[in-house]
């Protein structure tokens, strides 16, 4: 059996943070005596990721996603447990390891603000000891995939957020890392830029068989990119498996959305299913999968329906349920 690229066993990362009482008096007090509380950012997490997988980390703010990524990329020393990436222990930060991984954080940048992105690329070329020919090919290829060929020589501060993130991504990928950690790569981007980023991540994963771990707030990112998701909350894993299975398991129901031509009394809709939304001319009904065909037909025959669609429940709603329930 092939060894997994990433393996994490019972990983824990605790911080102690000092707490300040509110107000000026609290500030003065905290000069002399500090109260510390322990934050369990990651609390006994285990998983394995194989080569070429594209895995999504989902969870609310402070769930431990970023902390996990930081441990895996060698930025944080684990409190206990084991983390291995490509056979290395990340926190040792050996150059051989560092040349094989990359971390992109949507809210941090490595590009030199006052210079064109191109200059940062050249610096990274030297830092990672990339050969000239391969460097040129890689930049060309990545720039074409991201459609930023014409802005590489423009001062970074003059770029839009979307352009900058794309350049950040190129800078992080010049050394063709086998493992890529993406922390909120689409944060703050507009819909078009988000789409380009997603397409790129997908293509990069397929073309280079790179292992990618991605965190995101946008379910859209995860839905489109990741077959497998790891849902994490308060430092613990709630679910680790296929995204499609979580839909099956958590949402054995469908939603009928219907527009009526004339006002329909709410009372008349009772018996079709659970009414989620209603305003007289429009209704959303949630009902079990078995019933959906029959009830939809009945709806069409009973009322003057202008439009009708049958949909799966929104993935956001399902995830919300997972968090509410606390376990799968």
């Amino acid at each position: 059996m092939v060894n997994p690229v990433i393996s994490v066993k019972n990983l824990k990362k605790y911080y102690s943070v000092h707490q300040k009482e509110p107000g000026l008096l609290g500030s003065i007090k905290s000069l002399f005596k500090r109260k510390y509380i322990v934050v369990k950012a990651v609390d006994g997490v285990s998983f394995k990721i194989d080569e070429g997988e594209l895995v999504g980390f989902i969870g609310p703010n402070g769930a431990g996603k970023t902390t996990t990524l930081k441990v895996l990329s060698g930025l944080l020393y684990p409190t206990s447990g084991e983390a291995r990436v490509l056979g290395f222990e990340p926190f040792k930060r050996q150059p051989d390891f560092q040349k094989k991984i990359s971390l992109v954080m949507g809210q941090k940048n490595q590009l030199w603000w006052d210079l064109p992105a191109w200059e940062t690329f050249i610096l990274n070329k030297e830092i990672y000891e990339i050969l000239q020919k391969r460097f040129e090919e890689t930049v060309k290829q990545l720039a074409r995939m991201l459609d930023v060929e014409d802005i590489l020589k423009v001062q970074v501060r003059k770029l839009s957020l979307g352009q900058r993130m794309k350049c950040e991504l190129i800078a992080a990928l010049l050394h063709q890392p086998q493992v890529l950690f993406l922390d909120e790569p689409t944060i703050g981007l507009d819909v078009v830029a988000q789409k380009t980023m997603r397409d790129f991540i997908k293509e990069y994963n397929e073309r280079f068989n790179a292992t990618i771990v991605l965190t995101s707030h946008y379910m859209g990112d995860v839905k489109e990119l990741c077959k497998r998701v790891i849902i994490i909350n308060e430092g613990k894993i709630l679910y680790d498996g296929l995204l499609t299975e979580i839909v099956e398991k958590f949402a054995p129901y469908k939603i009928i959305k219907a527009d009526f031509e004339k006002m329909v009394d709410k009372d008349k809709l009772i018996g079709f299913g659970e009414i989620k939304n209603y305003d007289g001319l429009y209704v959303e009904i949630q009902l079990s999968k078995e019933e959906v065909a029959k009830k939809a037909a009945k709806l069409l025959s009973s009322f003057a329906v202008a439009d009708l669609t049958i949909e799966d429940p929104a993935i956001e709603d399902i995830i919300r349920q997972v968090f509410k329930k606390g376990t799968v």
Binding site: S73, G74, L75, R93, P95, Q98, K99, I101, S102, L103, M105, K108, N109, Q110, N124, I127, Y128
Partner: peptide, 12 residues
Amino acid sequence: DGSVVNFLIKPL
């Protein structure tokens, strides 16, 4: 500001 991370992640 945390950009020291850029050194920690690179062979530098």
